[in-house]
Amino acid sequence: MTQRSFEILDVTLRDGSHAMKHAFTEQHVHDTAKGLDLAGVNYFEVSHGDGLGGSSLQYGLSKVDELKLIEAAADVCKSSKVSVLLIPGIGIKEDLQDAVKAGAKMVRVATHVTEADVAAQHIALGRELGLKTVGFLMMAHMASVEKIVEQAKLFESYGAEVVYVTDSAGYMLPHEVTERITALKQSVGCEIGFHGHNNLSMAMANTVAAVEAGATYIDGSLRALGAGSGNTQTEVMVAVLERLGYNTGIDLYNIMDVANEVVAPFMQRPQEITGSSLIMGYSGVYSSFLLHTQTAAEKFGVDERDILVELGRMKAVGGQEDLIYDVAQSFAAKKAQ
């Protein structure tokens, strides 16, 4: 078998948790995992959308305990490995230990792009537990190239084997991706990954840019099931990258089948670029704010776009879902005056 050009990591069962309002069932996970394994995806992620321990009033309670979902996924894997997301400040080290007992083989420790130093212990634990250990720099559009390099070096120094540039807001354009991945390739020794969102319809173009600049881990989700307008669409990415001459190691028909026959039927809405997700991409707002913003806008009778633009102006970071309701309420109060 020829060697894969890179790893395509599927995040449907984690990023898709946002779009599903955290209502994945063991059946959903079982069937999707089975399809991903069959198609030859080496790594896929299963967690609450906000990572281990994310089940909360702040982000949404999980319908089914994520440990059960991780177990359901790990149980059907013949060769794929289950990844989990851990955001320090939300999840804790014990959550990771539990996830490993449930079958996780990879951890991606995620911080805001400027805050890598909160992750030292969690990355060290990942290595200690023998996991493939990844550092995930979220909202990468909010920092300069130099800052990203500095933070990636921190992750690497803690033991990360891969460092991701994560376009959580779907804000980045291909030249910006190229610039960041290229700078990282030149300055860190570990592998580089890219995770995109499609709020400006740039996810695929950004992914291609990342691969061409040397990224060796790239994320996608089936039918683009992820936060905001979703991620780079895994099955389309396989087709595109094969056409570009890369070897993805993934069977196109099999990956299409799991997308269309398993995932599409349980999706609650299509992954369109709506007015709100477009504004998220345009103003640089964390993609998982989408459905919370809709709820808050309805509750307070204000325009979703006004809330999102304000959140962008306030430089909200991932996890600040409470701010959405605070902003919506203050707009409603102003309107009432």
């Binding site: 702040q58 400040g89 939300i90 805001h112 805050e115 430089k315 970071v317 996890g319 600040q320």
Partner: peptide, 10 residues
């Protein structure tokens, strides 16, 4: 009880 902490560099 549950606690979450977020750092914002704005």
């Amino acid at each position: 009880g549950k606690a979450i902490i977020i750092l914002n560099p704005a």
